[in-house]
Design a protein around this nucleic acid. Structure first.
Lengths: 204, 204
DNA sequence: GTCTATAGGCTGATAGAC
DNA sequence: GTCTATCAGCCTATAGAC
């Protein structure tokens, strides 16, 4: 009994892992159930013992994906000393987000990549979790601005979209061969804070 | 005769417009030929008078998409006075890119959005045009750095990915209701050049 | 040029044996 | 729990009438 439920949980897990990997690479619609089954080491029909439909698998993958990002960012922030600057907090959060996406990331990448093309009902249900994550960034930015580490004139909504856009777009171009994820995230964080203009250059 | 070839060209155009619109919204794989035909005002079978396959339509849409972006950016840059600063050049290019994407942009959006999930042969053929466009940005950034308007220590490759990532990601969140495309692009350009940190704040 | 009709193939999902 | 077998539906693409 404990044996059966353990076996079931393992198969379910393998199916989810396989789906996340496939969704990340080819997208939800283009991925076939037979493909997921093959990666998971079983036949297409067997999937239906664990899931009611392909959409149900998608929902599970999306949920795990966003949760992994939230957990990674939260854990990284929790590991910082109380007195850490807001700049350090934001840099840490950016690195954690990017790492979750690129290195430990079939689920997280599948989430970010497929979000724009998932069926409407699934999207609606998933939106709540997404908003919670956005709220985390809103708070980080608000606190940094309140503490005077971000310019008071900065539009925090656009800054958040600017920042997350840069990070999320990396799934389109990142290849493990190049610079490390940490180095890239650090460079991006410096761009975000200091800008790329020559120091002392006047604004136009 | 001139009448027929004009009618043919018009239908072909309507099919492409319809495909670009659908590809932008739902992605290539999820879009059905019957759907494209319906938007274009004809039946699925009729499409094959104008195109040999669904993939052929995709290729045409992708090509037009990238060309529209290149043309928009090139035209905007050509409209600048000789003595324009490099900051102004880059800001202008960013605005043109974003406008092409968000406002005049079924083709351009379809291109950016579907690039990650197009069939391998199509992708390979399309890569060349993409690289040409990237080269345009490489030159802009190189010249700006050479002129001393971008910090000599800035990694131009990461700066380009940073900049284009921010712009391209906007197709995931932009809604016409909010701020104008020009205002958003201007804000992003200022972020890119000046950063969001409190002026005079020391780096950590 | 566009239509209707349909071929041919594949896909998500179900049923029943083991 | 997983398999095999199979169904029903849908989709791209083709053929031939108009």
């Amino acid at each position: 009994m404990a044996n059966d439920s353990r076996k079931s949980a393992q198969s379910r897990q393998r199916i989810l892992d396989a789906a996340a990997k496939a969704f990340r690479r080819k997208g939800y619609v283009a991925t076939r159930l037979a493909e997921i089954a093959a990666i998971a080491g079983l036949r297409a029909g067997s999937i239906y013992y664990h899931f009611g439909s392909k959409e149900e698998i998608l929902e599970a993958v999306l949920d795990i994906g966003i949760r992994r990002i939230v957990d990674a960012v939260s854990a990284a922030l929790a590991g910082l000393p109380e007195e850490a600057t807001h700049r350090r907090r934001l840099t840490t959060a950016m690195t954690a987000h990017m790492t979750a996406l690129l290195r430990h990331g079939d689920y997280s990448s599948a989430n970010v990549r497929n979000f724009g093309q998932i069926p409407a009902p699934v999207r609606r249900r998933h939106l709540k979790v997404r908003r919670d994550y956005e709220e985390l960034w809103r708070q980080l930015l608000r606190q940094a601005q309140a503490a005077g580490e971000i310019s008071p004139s900065a539009d925090l909504k656009l800054l958040r979209l600017h920042l997350l856009g840069t990070l999320n777009w990396s799934i389109e171009w990142y290849r493990p061969a190049g610079a490390s994820v940490e180095a890239i995230a650090q460079t991006f964080a410096d761009f975000i804070f200091d800008g790329a203009a020559m120091a002392g250059e006047p604004a136009p």
